[in-house]
Design a protein around this nucleic acid. Structure first.
Length: 538
RNA sequence: GCCCUCGUAGCUCAGUGGAUAGAGCAACGGUUUCCUAAACCGUGUGUCGGAGGUUCGAUUCCUCCCGGGGGCACCA
């Protein structure tokens, strides 16, 4: 027999007796006793099908689970202390050439949730944003803003080939014009470009930081790519690769032999022009990360970067860094449409749906939850209008409502003067209804879910799990009246509810979604103006 | 052409070497003297894209094919 994958808190064990399926129940029971000598107490046992047996463990196990949740609170299910390793999660890292858009929203939500899950798993996590502010894209951006600035003052100017056409470029230019006037319009070209580049850069950074704050994301560090140029780190990295024997010169450029690591072709490190490529920055960056001593270095990349994986892992190995320390989490794109019309997500092309606009439409909670509720391997394909229209159908509200409902329940108990003994002293044997046991069983799955989510860097596991918890709680709430004349039962059910609140609340916070203490009732049938209480977000 | 990823209910998506493959939305019906009805209960549909293979057992692993998305720069 094999035990289905379950942790110590397992309450339903499914046994598979494959080779000899037709054994009589008595024989099966003996087999179980032999296989699980530690499991002395078995509430029920039935033969579910050929070779399959369900065992229900004594509810006393479930009571231990409840007590563990109440004792450990948010930490329940964590491997505290077992893993003190430092982990860096590098995410967002969008070029400061415009506002964050919906594609980077997925990166932001995913990276932050993964970081939180690992924190919850006992790691020492640092969140980093890499500003790629040294490349040709920045120059093109500056040139574009400059052109709009000149246009504003009636000068002849055109956005260069490959420049940025988005409306926000004009907004930035207008803002610069409003603050500085036309002083730069007649300045020498080089001076003007430098001044405008700095202005445009600073304003974009400020905007991105503001958007991230609105989205509930805080980074521990922002690292500028300029650092690598100023310290010679890129040259050092190339030199180390050369020493290792993976560098050669061809066609006037300097190449990394990434084919030695399974890449399709070798990659240029230093261009014919003498300028390093972005990949060379990557090499310097991975050295920088490794030198800071992270046990795990996690990159969060969009699917368009999947082709870069082998070269970066190869470079790490060539640089003497164990590639097992480097993990690259890829996520598929978010395809946006609005009323059926596709929206493009290229900053250069313009026509962008920004993260700020998304937050305006659906709010941070719904946006983050929606972006996290699906596997990162799966393309998210939604119509903005539909998401807005279905806001009240979003599972995030279902889960938040369960949390608010429990909070309300506990408040009412307090108002009615219910005197609650400590959870250690509560008589839990009164929890015997199927709805109560269901809730206990579901709550007991938390450690397993967290472990799985952490091991696979998959926040959506947690999202689906708390939908289950919410559903089971709602059923329990409907079927079992909590506050009654029966003091013993009231106490047990209140503590059970408190545990459910703990599990939901902690999980929501890991996902970066607020866990409201109250949600206002909906007025009438209008589904467009609902108000979420607690954090007061519309 | 090569590489990555997805294809599961009308729609949006979970699941994954084991049991009768699940949830939300959408449809229809029911539930509130009572702790928040944003809730609960009931009614159902699946060639798990297709074909082979491995296995006692495949939706899950392998191969091929078809279809969607993304890559294959001296861009980032």
């Amino acid at each position: 027999p094999r035990q289905k994958e379950h942790g110590d808190w397992a309450t339903n064990l499914a046994l598979v007796l494959a080779p000899k399926a037709g054994q009589p129940p008595r024989h099966v029971a003996e087999a179980i006793a032999g296989a699980f000598p530690d499991v002395a107490a078995v509430d029920g046992l039935d033969v579910a099908g050929p070779g399959f047996i369900n065992i229900r463990l004594k509810s006393v196990w479930l009571h231990d689970v409840l007590r563990a949740i109440l004792r450990d609170g948010p930490a329940y299910g964590l491997r505290r202390g077992a893993r003190g390793d430092r982990v860096q999660v590098e995410f967002v890292s969008a070029n400061p050439t415009g506002p964050l858009h919906v594609g980077t929203a997925r990166n932001a939500a995913l990276g932050d949730a993964v970081a939180s899950i690992l924190e919850a798993d006992g790691y020492d996590v640092e969140r980093e944003y890499y500003w790629n502010d040294a490349g040709t894209q920045m120059e093109a951006f500056a040139a574009s803003v400059e052109a709009r600035y000149l246009e504003h003052f009636g000068r002849e100017a055109e956005i260069p080939e490959g420049g940025y056409q988005g409306g926000y470029v004009r907004e930035i230019a207008e803002a610069i014009a409003a603050d500085l006037g036309d002083a730069l319009a007649d300045a020498p070209a080089g001076e003007r470009r430098a001044a405008i580049a700095k202005q445009a850069y600073d304003r974009t950074l400020e905007g991105i930081r503001a958007t991230l704050a609105r989205f509930g994301i805080r980074f521990d560090s922002f690292l500028s790519a300029r650092l690598f140029y100023e310290t010679g780190a890129i040259d050092d990295a190339v030199a180390r690769l050369r020493e290792a024997g993976y560098v050669y010169e061809e066609d006037g450029a300097t190449w990394f032999r990434s084919t030695a690591f399974g890449d399709d072709k070798d990659r240029v490190l230093i261009r014919r022009t003498g300028l390093p490529t972005y990949f060379a920055e990557d090499c310097a960056y991975v050295v920088h990360k490794a030198a800071r001593g992270y046990a795990r270095m996690i990159y969060v990349w969009g699917a368009d970067h999947h082709g870069d994986v082998k070269r970066v892992l190869g470079a790490a190995e060539a640089l003497g860094i164990d590639p097992a320390r480097v993990e690259i989490l890829l996520y598929q794109f978010v395809n946006l449409s609005s009323g059926g019309a596709q929206s493009r997500m290229s900053k250069r092309a313009g026509d962008v749906v920004t993260l700020d606009e998304l937050i305006d439409e659906v709010g941070t909670d719904a946006a983050r939850y929606t972006l996290l509720a699906r596997s990162s391997d799966s393309t998210i394909d939604f119509d903005i209008e539909a998401v807005t229209r279905q806001t009240m159908d979003n599972p995030v509200f279902y889960v938040q409502y369960a949390h608010a409902r429990i909070a309300s329940l506990l408040r009412v108990a307090g108002e009615r003067g219910v005197e609650l003994p400590g959870w250690e002293d509560v008589e839990l044997d009164v929890l015997t209804d199927e709805a109560e046991l269901d809730l206990l069983r579901t709550l007991s799955e938390l450690p397993e879910i967290r472990e799985l989510a952490a091991a696979t860097l998959a926040p959506h596991r947690l999202a689906h799990y708390i939908e289950d918890v919410a559903a089971v709680f709602h059923r329990f709430y409907t079927e079992c009246r909590v506050i009654t004349e029966d003091a013993e039962r009231t106490h047990a059910r209140l503590w059970l509810s408190a545990a459910a609140k703990q599990v939901i609340g902690t999980s929501l916070r890991i996902l970066g979604v607020s866990a409201p203490e109250s949600m206002e009732r909906l007025e009438g049938d209008d589904d467009t103006d609902a108000v979420v209480g607690g954090d007061g977000r519309p």
